[in-house]
Design a protein around this nucleic acid. Structure first.
Length: 555
RNA sequence: UGACCCAUGGUGUAAUGGUAACACACCUGGUUUUGGUCCAGGCGUUCAAGGUUCGAGUCCUUGUGGGUCAACCA
């Protein structure tokens, strides 16, 4: 726990609860995903808050799957969710739970409510129930089935459970207040008939509890002290409390925070799913997706994500976080840990005319200037090398500290060279650059006295290895793709969000890189090895570029 | 025309009745064999009107603006 740091409102509540010895000072939270999709950066915030708070105050966090709707849920998702939470660095220890673990208890709670005259079976059609609920500004009307006897309700409910009725023909409702200004209190449905196979309970049940009748009670059963969720559940809180009070359960309390929104992206499961299904991305783990699996594949680190969430803060007002803050934390973490290597994405041949043919030198290279313990390696240098095509310009302006006719640059870890000539093809495209080098300008023993303003990365053609590089950019080119009333978010898809480079050339050290390995390609950005990589085909994903104050100047 | 929640730089988040601060972004400059990192500096903020108070971003009232709620989803 950091000392004098300012506290967010949840920390203040928790510290106050500890001071007043509420729940004997015990802190117990839960992360309650529904196993119906993949986790995204919005969930990362929830995970970090729920696990983070407990960690910070010596408490515990349960992982509980809210699996009350078998129609949408699947074990595939529970495995991916567990994997994602673990990868982020959090541990639920032996506390892996499912709302479905409590179906028997939940059923008993429902019978108790019926016996107490606080719940009834409604035979109305779905549409009738909806009509009778009224609208927010006008009270609803009571169902004709509202005043059945407890005996009749109990009998009907048991027969619902026994499978005697068709799906949709009856529901169990809590008997609260059809005139409540809070729509959730207008006799909410708490059980519906769903003749569906459940991924854990199989065919044991044909009635399933609704979210409102499962979530709070599950919290109470697990004796959760702080049930932290997002703002849209604020209106559910009176109902959450109503069930706890009327059933007589452990007094879990719900607290709400504002969900995370990121600029240039969308966060709804439904919309992300559409991107996948319509093939706008390669899958849920496409590196452009804001999913945890996508960001993992892209090369983002768990620490970067955690630090990002910490900086974003926790409050109750709607927010849109600038993606640049995320990128900042990705770079910050990678800068410390990523080995520096050389790779040329768009090769341009350079011949060093006065360098002896057939000669090769192994030049030392520091692996990470930020971390001496990462040591060094050597890189082969020879007469013919590749440089980045964008590092050469025929019409180089004054402030272009790179190569051009007559220009002098340092080849990182090697020699200073001066451009003497270049060849072009019939289209005026540069095909080859001729330079001379200064033998006494070798890195580490430079006595030439020549000053080169720019430094370039390079790869010896003879020694370089081929690789495929996948470049990613933001998926949407609008800051708030979902924030336009008259335009669909799909209209803002960035057509240039993905580019494949097939003919990149990397320094030979990289030949043994393994899937998931992260590197900084000097001067270009951070890259990681994609799992599609095979023996003969090295594939890298660009995680994020380096900051580029030159590009920003508009060149 | 209901209930609940929210309102601080470009974006976020603090300030708990007492000098509005921190991060990102942006802009300068320095260091640099990465136009990276690092270092130094700059820019810019309390929705409005009343009220309480010696003193209000903070408390009260009203207004304005925004969000949420009318799935047998969660």
């Amino acid at each position: 726990m950091e000392k004098t740091e300012s506290k967010n409102f949840l920390e203040q509540i928790i510290e106050n609860d500890i001071e007043t010895n509420k729940h004997e000072g015990r802190i117990h939270t839960r992360f309650p995903p529904e196993p119906n999709g993949y986790l995204h950066i919005g969930h990362v915030k929830s995970i970090c808050i729920n696990f983070g708070m407990a960690q910070q105050y010596g408490g515990k966090t349960n992982l509980r799957f809210d699996d009350t709707n078998p129609v949408n849920e699947d074990v595939e998702y529970v495995e991916s969710i567990k994997n994602d939470v673990k990868w982020l660095g959090f541990d639920w220890e032996d506390r892996l739970f499912f709302a479905s673990d409590y179906f028997d208890q939940l059923y008993e709670f429902a019978e108790k409510l019926i016996q107490d005259g606080k719940a009834y079976v409604d035979d109305s059609a779905q549409e009738e129930i909806s009509d009778m609920r009224g609208i927010p500004t006008k009270p609803g009307t009571e169902s004709p089935f509202r005043n059945r006897s407890a005996e009749e309700n109990l009998d009907l409910f048991r027969r619902m459970r026994a499978g005697e009725f068709e799906e949709g023909s009856r529901v169990l409702r809590a008997k609260i207040d059809m005139a409540s200004p809070n729509m959730h209190m207008r006799d909410p449905i708490i059980y519906r008939i769903l003749k569906a196979h459940h991924h854990r309970t199989g065919d044991k049940w044909c009635i399933y509890p609704m979210y409102d009748f499962a979530h709070g009670q599950s919290d109470a059963i697990e004796e959760i002290t702080h049930s932290i969720c997002t703002l849209e559940f604020e209106n559910h809180k009176p109902l959450y409390n109503w069930f706890i009070e009327n059933i007589g359960l452990f007094p879990s309390h719900q607290y709400e925070f504002a969900r995370l929104n990121l600029s240039y992206t969308i966060m709804s499961k439904r919309r992300l799913k559409k991107l996948v299904e319509e093939g706008h991305v390669a899958g849920w783990d496409d590196p452009r997706m804001p999913t945890i699996s996508g960001m993992r594949r892209r090369g983002y680190t768990p620490a970067a994500l955690r630090n990002f969430i910490k900086k974003v803060g926790v409050a109750k007002r709607e927010n849109v976080i600038d993606v640049s803050l995320l990128e900042f934390h990705v770079r910050e973490d990678l800068n410390k840990m990523a080995m520096r290597v050389f790779g040329v994405l768009d090769p341009l041949k350079v011949v060093i005319t006065n360098y002896p043919e057939g000669q090769t030198e192994d030049l030392p290279a520091i692996n990470n200037p930020e971390d001496e313990s990462m040591g060094s390696r050597t890189m082969p240098f020879s007469r013919e090398i590749y440089i980045e095509r964008s590092d050469f310009r025929i019409d180089a302006p004054r402030k272009f500290f790179r190569l051009g006719p007559g220009k002098t640059v340092r080849l990182k870890n090697a020699y200073i060279i001066t451009c003497e000539n270049h060849k072009t093809d019939e289209n005026g495209e540069v095909t080859e650059v001729h330079c001379k080098y200064y033998p006494d300008s070798k890195s580490g023993s430079d006595t030439s006295g020549i000053k080169a303003k720019g430094t370039l990365h390079w790869v010896s053609i003879q020694h370089g290895i081929p690789a495929e590089i996948r470049l990613y950019d933001r998926l949407f080119n609008d800051e708030a793709p979902n924030g336009h009333k008259d335009r669909d978010y799909m209209e803002f898809l960035n057509p240039d969000s993905f580019e494949v480079i097939k003919n990149a050339c990397l320094e030979p050290w990289l030949k043994n890189a393994k899937a998931g390995d992260r590197f900084q390609f000097m001067r270009l950005g951070y890259f990681c090895v994609d799992p599609d990589t095979t023996d003969g085909n090295l594939i890298f994903n660009r995680t994020v570029t380096l900051k580029d104050s030159w590009a920003k100047k508009g060149k």
